[in-house]
Computed example of a mutant assay.
Amino acid sequence: MAEPARHPGERPLRIGVLGCADIARRRMLPAFAAADGIEITAVASRDAARAADVAARYGCRPVTGYAPLLTLDDVDAVYIPLPAALHATWTRAALLAGKHVLAEKPLTCDPARTRALLALAAQRSLALMENVMFVHHPQHQAVRTLLAEGAIGELRSFSAAFAVPRLPAGDIRHSPELGGGALFDIGVYPVRAAVHFLGEQLHPLAATLHTPPSSAVDTAGAALLRDEHGVSAQLTFGMDHAYRSAYELWGSQGRITLNRAFTPPPGHRPVIHLERRGTTERIELPPADQVALTVRAFRTACRRAAAPNPHRPRDTAGTAPADPADACLRQADLLEAVRRAAAPHRPPRTASRAAAEDPTPYAAEGRR
């Protein structure tokens, strides 16, 4: 898909990066650098040498510490790839500094904090976007179009699975203090997919989270959800598994299945399998780079933030909310509802993270 033309007099969106996590170095910084209408102006790290090394690769300014970057006049927006438990603190600080924000998922570990941050962004006419990249890949719109056209009749159930192999022992996703665990890091994908296809009125019927004796966090889980029409959603996820990334929509007259659903590489050619009337049709789509598309969506959101539209239309499929803020909120609510359904005796997740949400030096910059 070609980049939209930019007005010759339009200034690029100037990006500062808060942290040198793996996802920033490996995926987001190269995408920012390649995007039309975006300029990387600063990279921050608690480690001065690390900031200098990463900044040198992109010809931008290194900054030691995160707070100083937020004071820079030549930074319009920040990308936050820090551990999940620190997103709320630094997202709020960035918004108060007048910066647009693209934050890694989940935006926060608590729905109340998510609501507060989205409200703050709206009050200040700033873009706040959660970096859920798969929703920007056109393969999912193609599936939703088939669904809206009645290709499989009336939808009866949705199932989604996302799991990755065992992570190294030192990975931050093993740390409860930094927001680790399978639900919030891996489960967010099938949960967001359920919101994407079934809409807002989803409620958990049952859930389970598995925490092995050797682990401080949950490493696997599953949830059964239901919408107001009786359509069920069965979600499974984990971070000690053979890799799987797929979903299926089962209707009264057929099924739609999609593999490589959540993290397809840029050169991957998606194939939608449509089963109906005893036959299976392969619908092949052109490759797409969901990282580049996400960056483009953020740039557009920043440009539109000064003139938000108070009317939030439904999408063409008539299911999930068209406004990303609505989807982000519903995702936050569902993640917490699944957590509570799986372990109702546990205290709220945020109670154990009060120290981590303080903007003081912390244990890890992140290796996402």
Rank of each mutant, 00 (worst) to 15 (best):
D47A: 08
I80Y: 09
A97S: 13
P348F: 00
F197C: 07
T89E: 08
A121Y: 12
R339P: 10
Q234F: 04
T91A: 13
A94P: 11
H7N: 14
V132M: 15
T211W: 04
Q201D: 12
V101P: 14
R61L: 04
Y247D: 02
P270A: 01
A307N: 14
V164S: 10
P348S: 09
A194D: 05
E130W: 12
A31L: 04
P62W: 04
E275H: 12
P324C: 06
Y58Q: 11
E130V: 05
P8S: 13
M28W: 15
T91H: 02
T64H: 11
S175A: 12
V54W: 04
H196A: 02
R26A: 11
L29V: 03
Y58S: 08
H345Y: 03
L146M: 05
A44N: 05
L118A: 10
E149T: 01
L29A: 05
A2I: 01
P30D: 05
L335N: 08
L249V: 01
F158T: 03
F134G: 09
H140K: 07
L69N: 03
L293A: 13
A121M: 13
A85F: 00
S214K: 02
I283P: 00
P308D: 06
E154V: 00
Y189M: 08
Q253S: 11
A33V: 06
R367D: 15
P308E: 04
S45E: 02
A121P: 14
Q331Y: 02
A354S: 14
P321E: 02
I23P: 02
A364M: 08
I15R: 09
A354L: 15
P310T: 02
D218Y: 00
F162P: 06
Q123N: 11
G181R: 05
A84P: 07
V195T: 09
V271W: 03
L334V: 04
V195W: 09
A341G: 12
D315C: 02
E357F: 00
G181A: 06
N131Y: 08
T300A: 15
L128C: 12
I272E: 06
R226E: 12
A49E: 15
R156E: 13
A67V: 07
T71W: 00
E336A: 15
E248D: 10
V231L: 08
L235K: 09
G9L: 06
F197K: 06
A355P: 07
G267N: 12
A261E: 10
G98Q: 08
V75T: 12
L334N: 05
R330Q: 14
A337G: 09
V338R: 06
T145Y: 04
D185M: 06
V195R: 11
P264I: 00
P213E: 04
R255I: 01
L29Y: 07
P8Y: 07
A21P: 06
S157C: 12
H196G: 01
I272R: 07
D326Q: 14
A193Y: 01
N309G: 14
E39H: 08
Q201G: 06
A363Y: 06
F184G: 10
L249F: 01
L167R: 15
L86Y: 09
S215H: 11
G180V: 00
E149Y: 00
A207V: 02
